[in-house]
Each structure stands twice: as C-alpha cells, then as structure tokens.
C-alpha cells in the first residue's frame, strides 16, 4: 500500500455562528506513512484540524487534499475506507456489546441495507485480538473500564482498516500499561503504510511516538517538522506560554515545566 499524503493549503475556517475564526490561512504538509503529533493548548484548533482532514468540516477557503484529491471527489463510503477516527471522549448512549461495536467499523464496506457478513466477523474478532481484548467480545461497553474502552475504540478503527488514522487524544485517562499498548498499536499500523495523526496534551507522548510534530497555538502552526527540529524548549515554551525545559535521558526526551 502506498501511504497517503495529506495537504492543507491556506485553510480558512470559522464555526457557524461564531465571531472568531479558528484558522486563517493555515498550511500544512502531513508526510505519508508517518506519525504526526499535533500539540497545543486547549482551543488551539487541534480537534478542528482533525475534523477538517476527516471531511466532517469543510473549510470556507483553501483546500484539504488526501492523496492530492479533495474530499468531494470521494464518495462517502470511499472516504470511510480511507480515513478512520477515534474521537475524543466518544459518548455511546446505548450499551452495545464490544463485538457489536467493533463490527460497526465494517460499515464502509457494507451498503445501506447490508449487515455484517461472516468475513466482517472474522476481521472484527481479529482487530479485538490485536488490541488484546478478545475475551471482552460479549461484554456490554458500559461495563468496561476507561482503558479497556479506549482499546475497544481502537479495535473498531482497526476493523475499519483505514489508510489515514486520526486519533484525538488517544491516551487521555489511560494508565501506563494501556498507554504503551496504544503506542505500539499505532506504530504497527504505520509500519503497514498507514498515515497516523494524533492530538495530545502530553509532550512526552509526542516525543515517544511521533516522527513529525506540529505545534499549534490560536489556529496557527507555530512550528511544524521533524521531531528533532521542532521539539525544542524554545518552541514548546512559545506554544504553551510557560517556561519549558526539554531534557534528554539516554535516547528519550523528557519535557519539564520550569
């Protein structure tokens, strides 16, 4: 599979009914087949950026291109096979079982009237096994702990087999063990040619997982590029508006607030 590049050029976006624009001329290149971390304070526009790449939101001006093509050139189902999303704090009001929920990841491969076929069950079971949650298949979602739940959300997106993986704060509220599991799953996906983008409030996580980093503040990309180049104390301090130190311990970067 050739990995898919994502290009945002001169994006303008404003939520309907709001005075202030989120983006006024944002341009970004997301390199294909890599992990890109989007960092920035609350309200910087991180989730909005993911929704623009997803196609849920349409910029008032400028283009978002997936593999050099705009969203409107894809059908809804094609786009569903192309881009997967694990939303931030997804609220699921009905107590689906884990298996029923993971099967929903197969929706882009089924037409309106179809229900999952035997092969979809196999893919869903496989996705659950990959996140290490095979034995949870028959449990209702509402009996899961936060960590288990996040793994199940990931299994759903794995069953979707998207080429672009969008993760909105994938490790928020997770313990260290589950965090590690999520990290290695994302890395595995990228190794198979997936382009992954995630937002996070944890610079350490970005340092551990990302190849590329985008630092955002108030709708602007303060810095974007390779982790080594962008992940500096100066850039991070500017992003969060507090003095920040970046320490190197062996091969790891550790971020400290002064």
């Amino acid at each position: 599979m050739t990995p898919i590049p994502i290009t945002l050029s001169n994006i303008h976006f404003r939520y309907e009914g709001r005075e202030v624009s989120v983006f006024e001329g944002l341009s970004l290149e997301i390199p294909p087949g890599s992990v890109t971390a989007i960092l920035g304070p609350n309200g910087a526009g991180k989730s909005t950026l993911l929704h623009l790449i997803l196609g849920l939101l349409t910029p008032s001006d400028g283009d978002v291109l997936l593999a050099q093509r705009p969203h409107r050139s894809y059908s809804r189902r094609e786009l569903g096979r192309l881009v997967g999303l694990v939303a931030q704090e997804e609220v699921i009001p009905f107590s689906f079982t884990v298996q029923e929920y993971v099967l929903l990841g197969r929706a882009p491969y089924l037409n309106l009237l179809e229900s999952p076929r035997p092969e979809d069950f196999i893919i869903a079971r496989d996705a659950l096994a990959r996140v290490g949650a095979a034995e949870m298949a028959t449990r209702p979602l509402q009996t899961l702990s936060g960590g288990e739940r996040q793994l199940v959300l990931l299994a759903r997106v794995l069953a979707q087999e998207p080429r672009i993986l969008l993760l909105d704060e994938p490790t928020a509220h997770l313990d260290l063990g589950n965090k590690g599991r999520v990290l290695s799953l994302v890395k595995q996906q990228v190794a198979t040619g997936v382009t992954a983008i995630f937002t996070t409030h944890e610079p350490d996580l970005a340092a551990a997982l990302a190849d590329y980093v985008v630092l955002m503040r108030a709708g602007q990309a303060l810095a974007a590029g390779l982790l080594e180049d962008v992940f500096t104390a100066e850039n991070l301090s500017r992003t969060y508006d507090v003095p920040i130190r970046v320490m190197r311990v062996e091969n790891h970067r550790i971020v400290l607030v002064e």
């Binding site: 196609g55 809804r76 999303l85 939303a87 997804e90 929903l104 929706a107 309106l112």
Partner: peptide, 27 residues
C-alpha cells in the same frame, strides 16, 4: 427493518458515524 443495522451507526456521535462512511444528517 431494512435499515436496522445501519441504525446502530446513526446512534454513534456525528464525527464517528461520518468517519464510518455514513451521511448522518441525511440518513
């Protein structure tokens, strides 16, 4: 009845349903 499995998809939030290839508002 024909759309009953699809209904599950529409019970998810808009962003997730959209990401799974649905047109939530229209459906």
């Amino acid at each position: 009845l024909l759309l009953r499995w699809r209904l599950n998809l529409l019970a998810l939030d808009d962003a997730t349903a959209f990401s799974l290839g649905a047109a939530p508002a229209r459906e």
